[in-house]
């Protein structure tokens, strides 16, 4: 179906939606590995804080992906990803890495 400018979106929004799903799955796998790291390392305040941060990062990612998928579904000519979403996704990924670095100790 063509939009006002005569462009056919084809499967582009669908492919982008699936890319968000794949990335969410990758994030889930990494978060589970991070949780396992905490479980192996044992308790302590640091571990609890790290676990909370990992959970928070995953939930934030889930929310971002969900909102973006809804946006892609709803509109005939989808808007560009907001730069703040890109920054938030990067923040999630980097906090997972940070937890990893802290838990190695």
């Amino acid at each position: 179906m063509a939009d006002a400018a005569g462009r056919d979106p084809g499967l582009q929004p669908e492919r982008t939606r699936l890319a968000w799903r794949r990335t969410t799955l990758s994030c889930a796998v990494t978060a589970v590995l991070a949780g396992r790291q905490v479980a192996l390392r044992g308790g302590g305040l640091l571990a609890a804080v790290a676990l909370a941060l990992v959970t928070l990062a995953f939930l934030l990612f889930l929310r971002l992906a969900h909102r973006r998928i809804q946006l892609l579904d709803g509109s005939p000519s989808p808007s560009t990803m907001p730069p703040r979403s890109a920054a938030a996704v990067a923040a999630c990924t980097m906090s997972l890495a940070l937890c990893g670095a802290v838990l190695l100790w």
Binding site: R7, P9, T23, S26, V29, A86, A90, A97
Partner: peptide, 28 residues
């Protein structure tokens, strides 16, 4: 054209997956 922006977004997500795989590999 939004199709180009979407392609750019997918490339971004592919790099994020690469980053997540590296981080997961570190844990593994």
């Amino acid at each position: 054209d939004y199709r180009f922006s979407l392609a750019n977004e997918r490339t971004f997500l592919a790099w994020i997956r690469t980053a997540l795989a590296l981080i997961g590999g570190g844990f593994a």
